[in-house]
């Protein structure tokens, strides 16, 4: 007979909490997605293949992926900068800026899209100056990227900020007593410590951008082959009562997203593991 007693846990039983987790995830995520794939499978294989390899669809995949990726990269850089300023400096209006960061979450995305379009259109406040330089922002992929950057901004800031806050000054002091300059301290001491958080924020911003619809449709102009994003194509199919086609495109997009996010998470896990917590 075993005399070993089970270690006490905070939540009652692994079985119960795991069961709850699975039920919850199933109802919210797995079942809806399964239905999506099921719907896509109502198409014949030939139809399915034809739908997803349609030139217009392929162009939209490419556009969505690269604009999302670039927007996430821009956010990773500038989000980190904003987090840095919010953590390391004291200045007037800091709390207001801190609150401002969350606004893209709260604003209906369509409102954001219309506002951005108004400003960046060829005769808008900012767009007119770029227009005179020969650069078009609204109704081009650049406009899409601006919209995606806008909606993804909070992710990087909010994931880097707490980590930066926790980062003890003694590491920087230790590095400076060893003769490191400020650039060396940032690159060799601070960046490795906050990098996992930057990747987390990057992954979230990227994922959000892949599925974004509301803010993009206004600023993109929705020109087939040029500025048509995947979510828009799906809506178009739905409006034509082509549920199978919409599901097919969505399924492929889902596959892409899952693989990319899985890879990013794996990367994040590896860098975080290297930077173990003592």
């Amino acid at each position: 007979m075993s005399t070993k007693r089970k270690q006490r846990r905070v939540l009652p039983g692994f079985g119960l909490s795991m069961g709850y987790t699975i039920v919850y995830l199933s109802l919210i995520i797995l079942i809806p997605l399964a239905v999506l794939v099921l719907k896509a499978s109502t198409l014949s294989l030939a139809d399915f293949w034809q739908t997803i390899t349609d030139k217009r669809v392929v162009a939209s995949y490419k556009l969505t992926l690269y604009t999302s990726l670039l927007a996430a990269i821009v956010n990773a850089v500038f989000g980190t900068l904003i987090a840095w300023i919010l953590v390391r400096y004291k200045f007037f209006g800091k709390r207001i800026i801190d609150a401002l960061v969350d606004l893209p979450f709260a604003l209906p995305t369509a409102v954001a899209g219309i506002a951005l379009t108004t400003i960046y259109s060829p005769n808008g406040w900012i767009g007119q100056y770029f227009e005179s330089l020969g650069i078009k922002i609204a109704y081009t992929p650049v406009g899409i990227m601006i919209a995606l950057t806008f909606i993804g901004l909070p992710f990087v800031v909010r994931s880097v900020q707490p980590v930066l806050q926790e980062l003890d000054h003694q590491y920087e002091e230790a590095a400076s007593t060893l003769g490191a300059g400020s650039v060396q301290i940032f690159v060799k001491i601070i960046l490795p410590a906050i990098f996992p958080a930057i990747i987390t924020g990057f992954a979230l911003a990227f994922a959000r951008a892949l599925g974004e619809y509301g803010s993009v449709v206004f600023i993109s102009g929705n020109m087939p082959m040029k500025t048509e994003i995947v979510p828009l194509l799906i809506i178009t199919k739905l409006e034509q009562y082509n549920y199978g086609g919409a599901a097919a495109i969505a399924t492929v997009m889902l596959g892409f997203s899952f693989i990319l996010l899985f890879l990013i998470n794996f990367w994040q896990w590896r860098t975080a593991k290297k930077h173990q917590v003592t």
Partner: peptide
Amino acid sequence: FVFQHYALFRH
């Protein structure tokens, strides 16, 4: 300089 909590670089 040696710190009380060592301040070794964890990564």
